[in-house]
């Protein structure tokens, strides 16, 4: 069967070549199917159109304009590449450059009087800015809060019991310690069991290569309140340290998630995951900023 042919190529080599080709095609197809199933394709299309049309509208605006944009509907982190005549959206993949990826583009009309600064951004929050006849993307925090406006039962923070937990990682235990002191000073009670707490917070690290700030909130009867608190803390943290977080994600804790059972699932419970240990080094010396931002937000939440 695998004897040599006239051209010197064996049947085995030919079959292997075809098999490699099939594997490549199959991988590409399954990548496509996977992206479709988790809605990434849809969100790439959506954000390409949405951001390109915003850039188009910015061409019509007179004066300076800032638009705060958040792309948190996509379950995957995306890369936004603003080019002179279009917006290209790519999957976020630090190992593969955008030149080697297939873009989801959407075009806008360019104008010689306005320069569109080419830049690439991979962040859940960014700003689309028009300044002095120049349009660009800026990696900056949201200035305005998009959190839901829920009627929060007015109750003072001093009547609340807090359970704060963290991993042994140096920065995180410092933040947790500072938070305990913050809440004690505000008159709240610190408890050492999540079951006794009205609000439980857990600070942990994840192993993602990028510094993604993740929030997992307890799926309890106070889920809407917890969701709002999550949103408020998220905005505040990204605002205070915009350069340290590439993206944020938030989702409810799934029942039976043993890795995240440290927070009280019956009341307000929030599990905050920072970047990998290596990236947590970036927060060295900034722990007080994070703890103060979380503390202030919780205090504001209960006002």
């Amino acid at each position: 069967m695998f004897s040599g042919n006239k051209r010197g190529m064996t049947t085995l080599q030919r079959v292997l070549g075809i098999v490699v080709l099939i594997v490549l095609v199959a991988t590409a197809l399954f990548m496509f199917v996977r992206n479709t199933v988790d809605d990434t394709t849809f969100w790439k299309n959506y954000y390409a159109k949405d951001t390109a049309l915003i850039v188009e509208l910015l061409h019509a605006s007179s004066g300076d304009t800032d638009i705060n944009y958040n792309a948190w509907d996509s379950s995957k982190l995306l890369q936004f590449f603003l080019r002179s005549d279009r917006m290209d959206i790519y999957d976020y993949n630090p190992e593969v450059s955008v030149d080697r990826q297939l873009a989801t583009p959407f075009r806008f009309a360019h104008n010689n009087n306005i320069s569109v600064e080419t830049n690439n951004i991979s962040s859940t929050y960014f700003r689309i800015v028009k300044r002095d006849d120049k349009i660009l993307l800026m990696k900056d925090a949201l200035k305005a809060s998009f959190c839901p406006t829920l009627p929060i039962t007015s109750s003072n923070i001093s009547s609340k019991k807090f359970f704060i937990d963290s991993s042994n990682q140096n920065s995180l235990s410092l933040i947790a310690g500072a938070l305990r002191i913050y809440f004690q000073r505000a008159g709240a009670t610190i408890v050492f069991s999540k079951d006794d707490a009205d609000v439980s917070l857990s600070l942990q690290s994840h192993n993602e290569p990028k510094n993604i700030l993740r929030f997992y909130y307890a799926n309890s009867i106070e889920r809407r309140q917890t969701n709002k608190l999550t949103c408020m803390i998220k905005n505040k943290m990204v605002q205070s340290l915009p350069d340290h977080f590439a993206a944020t994600e938030s989702e409810p804790i799934i029942n039976g998630d043993v890795d995240r059972e440290l927070v009280n699932s019956n009341r307000i419970g929030l599990y905050i995951e920072f970047g990998s240990e290596l990236e947590l080094g970036e927060f060295s010396g900034k722990e007080h900023i994070i703890s103060e931002q979380i503390g202030k937000t919780v205090e504001e939440f209960f006002k």
């Binding site: 095609v25 199959a26 197809l29 399954f30 496509f32 199917v33 479709t36 199933v37 394709t41 849809f42 299309n45 959506y46 159109k49």
Partner: peptide
């Protein structure tokens, strides 16, 4: 392989 892609494209709304 292509039937998988076709079915996915056909049943999942992607176009806006």
């Amino acid at each position: 392989l292509f039937s998988v892609v076709f079915l996915t494209k056909y049943f999942v709304v992607q176009n806006l």
